[in-house]
């Protein structure tokens, strides 16, 4: 525990231990990110397990997970640090009341670590007893260009600058994972500093492994039907194709309903767990679902 894996196989095994099933491609990139100390940039459709890998890495290595959720207008005050203004005000008033309002002393006292509120980026740069933490910068595409530019400094030198205190440098660089849903293109300058990986939908066998690891209470027969159906849905022309997260949710829904095998009725009732757009649901519910299910079952029969 806590040691950086020494080979690609070790990395895959380590993630497997956390019920995170990944292919050789993602394993390679994860290993390199750990080994070279470079940020890992994961891009892909929603629900393919981009965020999960950061959680799995943190848990497997016994490190702290620090998460920075991006949103529009994210600024330094919520990403790096903020001064504790109310405490500073009280300190000023106290100094005045006791007559000790010496400017230089007040300045150094007010802008000291005692009054600093740490936000995720600063926290990630500080030393941790269990080793450098895993810093997850989630959905970077949701924030705007100015914040990206600012991340460049943080990610290339692993340091952040506080005007009153000067630059703060990480003694050991944190393990950084960035994710993007590609609702806009992230600037090349940021991507270049990272190891890039496009996370695709998994193959049939891999998705089976994932379901087995994540929803062990589902029987193999049911999992196979679920995966086959979801995979044929991904072939259909939908506004939003279901990701792995949806397959897992759907499997859990079906188990909660004590389903042993898929039928068109069950699918129609629970389609909301899988498809999140009204257009898609009306397209698939009914005849199309029956057709896809028959197709999936036929494929299973020939394969098994």
């Amino acid at each position: 525990m806590g040691e950086i894996p020494s080979s690609i196989d070790d990395t895959i095994a380590l993630l497997n231990g956390q019920n995170y099933v990944c292919g050789r491609d993602l394993g390679t990139v994860a290993f390199l990110a750990l080994r070279l100390g470079k940020p890992l940039f994961l891009e892909g459709e929603a629900g393919v397990g981009k965020t999960e890998i950061a959680k799995a890495l943190a848990a497997a290595l016994g490190r702290r997970l620090i998460r920075l959720q991006c949103y529009e207008g994210l600024d330094a005050a919520s990403a790096i640090y903020e001064w504790n203004f109310s405490a500073q005000m009280i300190a000023i008033r106290t100094a005045e009341a006791t007559g000790g309002a010496d400017r230089a002393a007040l300045q150094s006292e007010l802008f000291s670590e005692d009054f600093l509120i740490r936000r995720p980026l600063l926290e990630a740069m500080e030393p941790h007893a269990e080793g450098p933490p895993v810093l997850l910068i989630d959905e970077i595409d949701r924030t705007d260009e100015p914040f990206e530019a600012f991340l460049l400094e943080a990610l290339s030198d692993f340091q952040v600058t506080i005007p009153e205190l000067g630059p703060i440098r990480a003694p050991e660089p944190p393990i950084v994972v960035l994710t993007s849903n590609r609702t806009r293109e992230v600037h090349d300058a940021l991507k270049r500093r990272c190891l890039y990986h496009w996370v695709d939908y998994p193959s049939f066998t891999r998705e089976m492994e994932i379901l087995r690891a994540r929803v062990p209470e589902a029987t193999d027969a049911l999992s196979a039907e679920i995966v086959a159906f979801v995979q044929s849905l991904r072939g259909a022309d939908l506004f939003k194709t279901p990701g792995v997260a949806e397959s897992i949710d759907w499997a859990r829904c079906l188990i909660a309903l004590d389903t042993v095998a898929l039928s068109p009725e069950v699918i129609s009732d629970t389609l909301g767990g899988l498809l999140k757009y009204q257009d898609d649901i009306t397209r698939i519910a009914g005849a199309e679902a029956t057709r896809l299910l028959d197709e999936a079952k036929a494929r299973l029969a020939t394969a098994g």
Binding site: D25, T28, L32, K191, L195, Y196
Partner: peptide
Amino acid sequence: DFYHTLRATLINR
């Protein structure tokens, strides 16, 4: 592995 290593470092789109 060689394929994925080069891909991770050289490609970012």
